[in-house]
Write a protein that binds this DNA or RNA. Structure first.
Length: 207
DNA sequence: TAAGGGATTGCCT
DNA sequence: GGCAATCCCTTAG
C-alpha cells in the first residue's frame, strides 16, 4: 500500500467552490472506521454556491445547514427524502454557505465492508439476495454514504483535515478528462453547469 | 401549529 | 420508465 497524504486545510481554503468541485475529482475519500478501512476515488461532484437557489444555504443559516457555514474542509451531512443521507465538502469562507456534494466514488479499498454496509438493510428486510456488484456500491450520493459508513450524528460538522475520515491526494497525477454538465434531481437552478464527473468512468451515477 | 416537499433509491410494470 | 417510501426541516398562516 502506497503512502497517502491527507489533503491539508490549504487545499480547501485556496480554491473557490467550482474549482474545488473539479479538484476533488481523482482524489480519494478514505474512512478508517473501527470496522476497517473503506476508500474510493471521487469521480463525480456537484457545486452548490452562495446565491444559488438550489443551495441549502440559499435563504439563511438554519439548524440543518449550519455546517455549511463552517470552515472549508468541514463535512455537511443531511437527511434526504426521509431515508437517505448525502455528504458535502464545505467550501468558501467561514460564514459563506457553499459546498461540494460528493455524488460517486470508484471503490478502491474495503469493498467487502462496503457491500456488507450497503446490503445490511436488504438482509434485514429479506428482499434482496444477490450480492451487490462493485458498481452498485458507491454510484450515487446516498449509496456512497452507506458504503463508507458515514453517519449524520457522527460526521456532520466533522473536519476532513483531522480525524479518520479524510481526502487523500491521488496516487497518480494522470489528468482525467472532466465533463461539465447540469446537476441532478433539482428544480431550482437546474440549468447551471455545476456538475462535474470523470469522462467514461463507469462508476459515475448517471451519464 | 400545520402542511408541504426534498441535492434518492430500488422495486414494480 | 414510473412511482412509492419516509422523515425532519422549513415556511406559511
Amino acid at each position: 500500500m502506497a503512502i497517502q497524504s491527507k489533503r491539508p486545510d490549504t487545499f480547501y481554503q485556496q480554491h473557490d467552490t467550482l474549482t474545488l468541485a473539479q479538484k476533488l475529482l481523482g482524489s480519494e475519500l478514505v474512512h478508517d472506521s473501527p470496522e476497517g478501512r473503506t476508500a474510493g476515488i471521487i469521480v463525480e461532484t456537484e457545486a452548490y454556491l452562495w446565491g444559488d437557489p438550489a443551495c441549502h444555504a440559499y435563504r439563511r443559516q438554519t439548524t440543518r445547514n449550519a455546517a455549511m457555514f463552517g470552515p472549508p474542509g468541514t463535512l455537511y451531512v443531511y437527511l434526504i427524502y426521509g431515508m437517505y443521507h448525502c455528504v458535502n465538502v464545505v467550501s468558501g469562507a467561514i460564514g459563506i454557505g457553499e459546498a461540494v456534494l460528493i455524488r460517486a466514488l470508484e471503490p478502491t479499498e474495503g469493498l467487502d465492508l462496503m457491500r456488507a454496509r450497503r446490503q445490511e438493510r436488504y438482509l434485514v428486510a429479506g428482499t434482496k439476495s444477490k450480492p451487490l456488484s462493485d458498481k452498485e456500491l458507491c454510484s450515487g450520493p446516498a449509496k456512497l454514504v452507506q458504503a463508507m459508513g458515514i453517519r449524520l450524528a457522527e460526521h456532520n460538522f466533522s473536519s476532513l483535515t483531522q480525524g479518520p475520515l479524510f481526502v487523500s491526494s491521488p496516487f497518480s497525477a494522470a489528468a482525467a478528462e472532466i465533463v461539465t454538465t447540469t446537476r441532478i434531481g433539482i428544480t431550482q437552478g437546474a440549468d447551471l453547469p455545476y456538475r462535474f464527473y470523470v469522462k467514461n468512468n463507469p462508476f459515475v451515477s448517471k451519464r
